[in-house]
Design a binder for these strands. Structure first.
Lengths: 151, 151
DNA sequence: TATATACATTTGTACCTACAAATTTTGTAA
DNA sequence: TTACAAAATTTGTAGGTACAAATGTATATA
């Protein structure tokens, strides 16, 4: 659906405005489908992202700030996201012995199992949602998106 | 910056995953700059969107549901957004006399003045943020984003 | 008319983001 | 050593989103 129809605009929009609106619409479109998958597992999108980061550590603990740096949303509140994951026993939290200001986070077996269950569903979602585009188009889209952030 | 570097990924990502991550990153990037502009005016991005919709009505009132339909975020809570705008006297709210279930919203002069002040700043932002891309690339990006939502 | 049903909006709750201030721990300089 | 500044995290507060339930109004139908 064209972006003018999505917002029921009566006037013509500049191409800059269209791209920016389309970016938001498409991101929401993708995000909504993503949340549908996570819903039965009772974790949010950002909680999932944190779990992914923790799994990527392969057993090595990671502190709050380093988690924050790797997140999609930079101002997300890692403390409170971790709190939610702790309640579900999906992560473990320990004070770093070398520097007691730091907190070290580890993913638990429960967290790993949840991700393992999700893996095929997420991959399916990712492939499905991009299936309208050829590989060349996906590469193109990827480059154009990265180019916008080059400032 | 490449998306793998943004999230400091150590493993290669599928092109589908990269596109989806890039979509979120780029949307946040654009949105953050947008919020910086709005900040001195003490209105949020969604409040701005509502004001834009109301101005587009050119004096014709619009009800809650129709506002909702035109918003970027479909599950946003229009009642509470309008409440905030009412406090700033940027909108007016009246029960529809023909159908008392409906609520009619109008933008006030204060709302219009705020938008008029913002117009050049927003346009500047939109043109600046897309200035890395040629017009052809912007059209391409626009088409690719719309194509993803074709399902 | 009474009652059920649909419609339009509001309210409640849980989670998330943005940003500033507070807290705890560490490092450093007089 | 004491005082001060920096670092790492937590807490507080004001928006927002997502979704379900509640409220009030209109409409249909027996």
């Amino acid at each position: 659906m064209k972006i003018e129809d999505e917002i029921k605009s009566t006037v013509a929009l500049s191409i800059a405005k269209k791209v920016i609106l389309n970016l938001a619409f498409t991101k929401n479109y993708v995000g909504d489908k993503f949340n549908e998958i996570l819903k039965p597992f009772e974790i949010s999108g950002e909680q999932y992202n944190v779990l992914r980061i923790l799994r990527g550590q392969k057993g090595k603990p990671i502190n709050m700030q380093d988690i924050q740096d790797r997140m999609v949303t930079k101002n997300s509140n890692t403390t409170r996201l971790i709190d939610k994951l702790l309640l579900k026993k999906m992560v473990e939290r320990n004070v770093c012995p070398e520097n007691r200001r730091k907190i070290e986070i580890l993913i638990t077996q429960i967290g790993l199992n949840t991700l393992a269950e999700l893996d095929p569903l997420i991959e399916n979602h990712e492939n499905g949602i991009t299936s309208n585009l050829t590989n060349t188009e996906l590469e193109q889209l990827n480059n154009l998106l990265e180019k916008i952030r080059e400032n």
